[in-house]
Amino acid sequence: MFIKEVESFIEEDLGYDDVSCTIVPDRPVEAIIFTKEACIIAGTKEAGSIFSYLGIQAETTLKDGDRVKEGEIIFRLKGGAVSILRAERLALNFLGHLSGIATLTRACVDTVRRYSETTRVACTRKTTPGIRKFEKLAVAAGGGDTHRFNLSDSLMIKDNHVKLMGIEAAIEAAKSTSFTRKIEVEVESAEDAVLAAKLGADIIMLDNMQPEIVRRTLDILKGKGLRESVIVEASGGISQVNLESYAKTGVDVISMGSLIHKSSWIDLSLEIVS
């Protein structure tokens, strides 16, 4: 985490006159952060940056992606009482939110692994403005794929691009941008998937297709000798409820906005022990 980010987050939480933390005697104390439920931990680096900025000595044996049990200690802290109180909610917010994402991601990856050793589970750009990179790194901690971090990472031709330009013109324009960027095309039919593959798309996203249609589209691509030339991604409305059906289709990537926007925060707590 950059110092400017830490300062921005702290400024938001402290405000201009912190009367809540400064009423306590500022003496050296020790504290622990522990989880109240089993989870995949994430956010340790972000919490560590907050502790470091506030002059708090933080020790942990854990790293993002580790599985922890209910009641397990995540951090042992030493520092001034005021600083630890100031760090408390901010650090817990990052740990709770990011661990929730990592935990849901790991559960989804485990579901997919029962049917495929190669299919990737990816997130999308449906993220919280300002903390996207942290949320996507939490997906990675859970064993998922981060997909694009932003619009500059790769070129995705979506339905509105096609409405404005058509698939052929959009792919041609995309190819002219740079040889280093992969081109992904969002399609809603097997016919458009075949067309995109023939025009040289690197990735084809099957958008909002039911699992049986995804399977049929893959068979059509294979029958035309196009299956091996493209990465095929299924996306749109996929959650834990229907994930198993998509995992059985044989797609290369299953992207899920729900990894982030439907994750539940993990309950953690900070307790001063001396």
Rank of each mutant, 00 (worst) to 15 (best):
M1Y: 09
F2M: 15
E5Y: 11
F9V: 09
E11I: 02
E12M: 11
D13E: 08
L14E: 12
G15P: 00
Y16D: 15
D17W: 06
S20V: 12
C21P: 01
D26H: 00
D26K: 00
R27G: 05
V29D: 00
E30A: 11
K36T: 01
E37Y: 07
A38F: 05
I41P: 05
I41G: 06
G43K: 03
K45T: 07
K45C: 09
F51W: 01
F51H: 00
S52L: 09
L54A: 05
Q57N: 12
Q57M: 09
A58G: 02
E59T: 08
T61M: 06
D66R: 00
R67F: 14
E70F: 10
E72A: 13
I73D: 06
I73N: 06
F75L: 04
F75V: 04
R76C: 04
K78H: 14
G79F: 00
A81W: 01
S83V: 05
A87G: 07
R89I: 04
L90W: 03
L90E: 02
L92W: 03
F94A: 07
F94N: 00
L95W: 05
G96A: 02
G96E: 02
H97V: 00
S99F: 06
G100L: 01
A107R: 10
C108F: 08
C108Y: 06
V109N: 01
D110F: 07
D110V: 06
V112N: 06
V112A: 12
E117D: 15
T119N: 06
R120C: 11
R120A: 15
C123T: 14
K126Y: 08
T128C: 12
P129K: 11
P129R: 10
G130S: 15
I131W: 07
L137C: 10
A141V: 14
G142F: 07
L151M: 15
N160P: 02
V162C: 07
V162S: 03
V162L: 08
K163D: 13
K163G: 10
A170E: 06
A170L: 09
I171R: 01
E172C: 13
A173I: 05
T177R: 14
T180E: 13
T180M: 14
T180D: 13
T180H: 13
R181E: 14
R181K: 15
K182F: 09
I183M: 08
I183V: 15
V185S: 05
E186I: 11
E188F: 03
E188W: 01
E191T: 09
D192N: 12
V194S: 08
A196W: 00
A201C: 08
A201E: 04
D202F: 03
I203T: 08
D207W: 06
N208W: 03
P211I: 02
E212K: 10
R216A: 14
R216V: 11
R216M: 14
T217M: 01
L218K: 03
D219K: 13
D219A: 15
L221Q: 00
K222F: 00
R227K: 11
I231M: 11
I231D: 02
S239H: 08
Q240L: 14
S245F: 10
Y246K: 05
K248R: 15
T249W: 00
V251C: 09
V251R: 04
V253N: 07
S255T: 04
M256Y: 03
I260N: 01
K262Y: 15
W265E: 12
I266S: 07
I266A: 10
L268F: 15
L270W: 02
E271H: 11
E271G: 08
E271F: 10
E271A: 13
V273F: 10
S274L: 12
